[in-house]
Amino acid sequence: MKHSFIALIEDKCTSCMLCVRECPAWCIHLDSHTVDVTDEGARRPKKVNVLDSFEIDYSLCMYCGVCIDVCPFDALAWDEHRALVTTNREDMLLGIEELGPSGSS
């Protein structure tokens, strides 16, 4: 596996913030909100986090893989995505859409 890209598997992310807090470069930004979900037969609703946005700033990322290691739900993974070359520094900020694993698109 090439260590050339860190991909986000959106469905697995629970917005627990662990990757954001452990990142030594502070290059991950995550926004989420909480909703009440009532399961059938449950007595009271449970709180569920919904991921609003997830961004990795690849101009800062040092590909250390700490975020991949700490993710308890394997929502982040090494990926053989294309190497990232841009003409704008802002284009290095990748959101949920661009972070999808290479097999999915």
């Binding site: 954001v20 930004h29 986090n49």
Partner: peptide, 13 residues
């Protein structure tokens, strides 16, 4: 001085 991204919490909206 840099806003820490880890300070964010899931928001109640």
């Amino acid at each position: 001085l840099t806003p820490w991204p880890g300070a964010a919490e899931p928001e109640i909206k």
